[in-house]
Design a binder for these strands. Structure first.
Lengths: 340, 340
DNA sequence: TCTGTATAGGCAAACGTTTGCTTATAAGTA
DNA sequence: TACTTATAAGCAAACGTTTGCCTATACAGA
């Protein structure tokens, strides 16, 4: 690889000094530059294909113009949408995005966060793993600008948080099912070990309660976060609890495996079984599919997170901590039968 | 934001010099360090929460450990899969990924590429827009390590290329349709202005030819790259050419809109109309969907691109240019009726 | 005692920018 | 003429690393 031209190279060709070149190229005011010099500098820079090194200029205190975003699941459209939406905001403000996949593994998260500090990024958007509080300790100590998305940092008092109202999502979905007369309902979920996500399940029980449905008629099946697990859990429910009339999927990746599994078994939705899902992956309304689901407005979540981070970065002093909890909305499809 | 501790800070606390600290922390051999000094340095670094600045060290000729990947459509799973797969490879080798969305807009591409040189990334993976040849001129001149993915750089002789055999994809899909007895078939595609992608359409005609089907019985409808356009084009075909028995979608995003539109119109697949699609987005086999399609092995494409870039980066001298063209495979679903 | 070598670590230049300080000329004003 | 001010641009330090070069001590062998 060839060497990049430096300010000095340009200066030499233009018959001036690096300082002058720097002033010309950065269009800094407060310094007098003759038209003649400006022209020569511009010409020389052009000819040598000069491109400044952000690394070097950031040494002098300039911003690196880099934002890092860490998400736990790249295969989950909920997160890729957050990325897309925030990227749009950042790019508009001249920032580039380093996107990393933690695979929900705490060690990966720790390693990546450390590298992001090494890169001296201007800010971080993070959906923490279950070790997030521990892993962000250093970030919080050095005062790295950070916005936490989706899941909170348990035990931490002050942080910027943009999230979905998980309890609300669970409640609105479950409520709809019960309102259509379903009494034997199974909740399929992810045993993530992440407290905040459990709210979906709690809401499910609470919604049942408002309909006077006892816990005994409710089934809960939890397992790993994958389509395969979704299929396995679904099969389990079908076999052990043939009496259920509806399944409530708390997580869209499991739902994907689950409903595909149902179709393959020839179970017709909603005639034989009703289905409700939290989340809005593309497939949910694609082609022959038309699932009733709870939308979390993923894109808006991403935009809010990006703007919150930018406001921190651009602020002179401290910005007061903020928690933005976004509500969800129920999208009615044709996967829930009215059995009243 | 607090100042990060520097080598000097650590050195002062440990009672030594920056040089020694650097040697200790980088575990460089060839320099004698007493256990006592090492201990003190490590302790001081720990205490001050020292994190090295990659920016500064890259000034001294060290790699920045950054790879950029530019894709044109973030909402297209074909590309996000390439990103995921290559990320895994890169991270394993200690590289971070800057992921950017060009939105298929040449100006964006140009601006982003320029910023990537400013960031002095170690290499770039790029799916070029139609102005790619022009926009990568500088990159090629400065000898930036680069792998082009999916679409070629027309007019450029030497570049690393990892792509799908677009002609092959078109042929295998079309061939299958004709083999099932379809004679009046519509091809719905994207008028991208990108030569290489046109191969899909050419293959469609060629496949028809091998079955002795004349051009007159074939329909071509082309438009923009979006689900909405897919729906519009589909409606157009249905209305203007009710005689078609099958639709061949050349691009998955258009297909999404198209088949959803078909379902909403109550047209049953494959009883009333057969459908073939190039690409394997998640929805294609999800839930009630089971579309016959042409798989491009997106993940493998990403892995190959990443490895090709790494081999360039790690090589001492020049690596011979390479074109890797990957074949596709037909996945049989239930969306094509046998009407022989 | 002298030389050689293994061990330990300091000093300072360099990487490519940015910017405060300084100098030099020309033109305007008292 | 002397003093100010506007215009133009050079010099060098600094940012945080890395690394070649040098110095110093200790101990071994001759």
């Amino acid at each position: 690889m060839k060497r990049y031209a430096t300010l000095k190279d340009v200066a030499k060709l233009a018959g001036t000094t690096a300082a002058t070149v720097s002033y010309v190229l950065n269009e800094k005011e407060g310094r007098y530059i003759s038209d003649e010099t400006r022209r020569k500098v511009l010409e020389a820079a052009e000819q040598l294909e000069y491109v400044k090194s952000i690394g070097a200029s950031s040494l002098k205190g300039k911003s690196r113009k880099l934002i890092a975003i860490l998400i736990p699941q790249f295969e989950n459209q909920f997160f890729t949408r957050i990325v897309v939406a925030s990227e749009e905001v950042f790019v508009k403000h001249g920032y580039d995005l380093i996107i990393c996949n933690t695979f929900d593994k705490p060690e990966r998260e720790k390693a990546i966060l450390n590298r992001m500090i090494q890169q001296r990024v201007d800010g971080i958007i993070l959906t923490p793993t279950k070790m997030g509080t521990e892993n962000t300790k250093l970030l919080r100590k050095v005062g790295m600008k950070m916005v936490v998305v989706d899941r909170p940092l348990p035990g931490v008092k002050d942080f910027f948080w943009v999230a979905t109202n998980n309890y609300g999502c669970g409640f609105v979905g479950a409520h709809y099912l019960f309102s259509k007369g379903h009494k034997r309902v199974a909740y399929i979920g992810w045993n993530s070990g992440i407290e905040d996500l459990e709210a979906r399940k709690r809401a499910f029980f609470d919604a049942a309660d408002t309909y006077g449905i006892s816990q005994d008629s409710l089934i809960v099946a939890e397992g790993g976060f994958s389509a395969e697990e979704g299929c396995r859990l679904t099969s389990y429910v079908l076999e052990k609890h043939p009496e259920v009339t509806a399944i409530f999927y708390g997580f869209n990746i499991q739902a994907l495996g689950g409903v595909t599994c149902l179709s393959q078994r020839g179970i017709s939705i909603p005639e034989e079984l009703s289905v409700m899902i939290i989340g809005s992956p593309e497939w949910i309304m694609a082609g022959k599919n038309d699932f009733t689901h709870v939308d979390m407005n993923d894109l808006e979540l991403g935009r809010k997170a990006a703007n919150l981070l930018l406001s921190q970065i651009q602020a002179e002093g401290d910005v007061p901590f903020q928690h933005i909890i976004q509500d969800c909305s129920l999208i009615e499809g044709s996967s829930v039968r009215d059995i009243r």
